[in-house]
């Protein structure tokens, strides 16, 4: 067994929250630069120019890239041979969020659904645990803003609808969302599992790098096909028109019930803010 101290986890989580919200990931920056070169429209170029300037300024000043520093979402893989000392892992992660959002001057966006009263420290975090072989603890963090999350959907298609039905639903969702979720967006797609599981894997898919390729060549081809079709919508950066409506499409596919074809579309804004740490 390997022991990991609570204080080390708290510190790692707090610094991930701050770093993800102030430093634009290099894969996203590369996509912005590529889109700048490919766009013909002056308004599309101007939006991308502002986003790059914003990223430079955020890195320099440590101001968050976006005021909506999101709900704190975590995917945690805990090795079977890991012992956490000094507290309960869920509470430890929440303490890390409390510190990170406090020390980093990040916005606290968690509130009661009915009274809308702010919980004050951006907890509770949304945490998905998974148990894996080994003696490592891997924590992935995503700042999930409300604007893009509101444009996300889960639907239960009929098996007969197949890939064509999936494509139609996803493209239509991006079209309906239009300028609202801060395009160019990244689309996480969960296919299979159950109602809840499809949503979970669609979000986890957003943790992938924009420049990666799905290991299954068939799924990789589907991602590419969807990305190209969506970009034909012409919504463009901030909905002002252009070739770049999405920066990437990331799919996760798992077995489902004979009767079902669950589909989740998780929309992520252009500032794909995420970090990961392995302890």
């Amino acid at each position: 067994m390997r022991t990991i101290q609570a204080k080390d986890i708290i510190e790692a989580v707090a610094s991930m929250c701050i770093k993800a919200n102030t430093e634009l990931p290099d894969d996203v920056r590369a996509k912005f630069e590529q889109a700048m070169a490919e766009e013909d429209s002056p308004s599309a170029k101007e939006v991308l120019r502002q986003l790059l300037e914003n990223a430079d300024l955020a890195a320099e000043t440590k101001l968050p890239l976006c005021q909506d520093t999101g709900l704190a979402v975590f995917f945690v893989e805990i090795g079977e041979d890991v012992v956490v000392e000094g507290g309960n892992l869920k509470e430890i992660i929440n303490e890390g969020v409390r510190r990170g959002y406090g020390d980093g001057f990040l916005r606290k966006s968690s509130c009661d659904p009915f009274t809308r009263a702010n919980t004050g420290d951006n907890t509770p975090a949304i945490i998905h645990f998974d148990i894996v072989p080994g003696d490592r603890l891997k924590i992935s963090y995503m700042a999930k803003g409300g604007g893009a999350e509101n444009m996300s959907r889960v639907t239960m298609l009929a098996p007969a609808q197949g890939w064509e039905g999936i494509k139609k639903y996803v493209i239509n969702r991006v079209a309906e969302a239009g300028p609202n979720p801060c395009p160019p967006t990244i689309i996480g797609i969960g296919i299979g599992g159950t109602f809840d599981h499809a949503a979970r894997i669609s979000k986890k898919a957003l943790l992938r790098r924009l420049d990666d390729t799905h290991p299954d060549p068939q799924i990789a081809a589907m991602e590419k096909e969807l990305e190209e079709d969506i970009n034909q919508l012409g919504i463009g950066p901030m909905g002002l028109g252009g070739k770049t409506t999405v920066l990437g499409v990331k799919m996760a596919v798992e077995p489902c019930h004979l009767a079902s074809l669950p589909l989740a579309v998780n929309v992520q804004c252009h500032s794909q803010r995420h970090e990961e740490v392995e302890l």
Binding site: L63, P64, Q67, D68, F105, S109, G146, P181
Partner: peptide, 20 residues
């Protein structure tokens, strides 16, 4: 339509872009 992030020391406001 904005909910800014908290102002760090020495600044009037934090990050302050538009909401939907």
């Amino acid at each position: 339509y904005v909910g800014p992030s908290p102002a760090p020391p020495g600044r009037p406001i934090g990050s302050a872009g538009p909401t939907t």
